[in-house]
Design a protein around this nucleic acid. Structure first.
Lengths: 128, 128
DNA sequence: TGACATATTGCGAATTATTCGCAATAATGT
DNA sequence: ACATTATTGCGAATAATTCGCAATATGTCA
């Protein structure tokens, strides 16, 4: 899982940030996290690297309709989906049986399916 | 399925536009479509109404990670998901067995699940 | 039907997320 | 250590969406 051609400071920091925060994070959150550690990586560089990491399958892009993208390291945990609390924005991982998720797709009309996003929305215990 | 308190020109036009285009559309696409018909609704009003329609469950919000939201009327077709072509952006509806999609969610950690988004990404016949 | 109360619109400006161009800097191979 | 060039930082540019507010249009009720 190699990102770009050089192992730069920025990449180390971004990778570590995502890993440590251990949940789907936005570019801005990565920026803030790095800054908390008295280091800094320009936001534009964070975006550029997230795109690279996505293309090389190092991260997943996760969408909750907040108007921004969230990113999560791919290898860390196995394949899973998310529960997004519409009250407080809390995010939980969930696993589910889905051996047949793609097989069950009726008539994919000639599409070659490469990946899927499945997110659940609801209310966490505190927000119910 | 009532949107707001008044049945305004803007609402008629927006509703008709989404219905006629018959696919998940962005706010801008709604705006352009209405304009083609020599009518006009301000973009801000389109956004405001889409939000209302979403809250009152008249439309679904659909995300493909393009950096914008897409909207689709809810009642028209039954529950379904989408195939998004990463090549040309073409969108197809798909149905699938999912009686047990939610039931299969293991350990929802006290969340009350209200809805889910499931989108597939791949390549359409032309883009393969 | 006409007038009122107020929900909704249009307009312009403001935000927020993300992208771009380019010169300066830092990784890597030799 | 040096040269090559990938990558960064910076500042400006886009794109999507939101906001404030005055003007307008709807639904209601006398």
């Amino acid at each position: 899982m190699k990102i770009g051609k050089r192992y730069t400071q920025a990449r180390k920091r971004i990778f570590t940030a995502i890993e440590k925060m251990d949940k789907p994070v936005s570019a801005q959150e990565i920026y803030d996290y790095i800054k908390q550690n008295y280091e800094e990586v320009d936001l534009a560089s964070i975006y550029r690297n997230l795109e690279l990491m996505n293309k090389s399958d190092a991260v997943n892009v996760i969408l909750f309709g907040e108007g921004k993208k969230r990113y999560e390291l791919k290898n860390k945990k196995g394949h899973h989906h998310h529960l997004f609390c519409e009250g407080c924005g809390d995010i939980k991982d969930i696993k589910m049986k889905e051996e047949n998720l793609i097989n069950n797709v009726k008539d994919s009309q000639g599409f070659v399916i490469k990946k899927h996003n499945l997110e659940f929305f609801g209310l966490c215990p505190n927000c119910q």
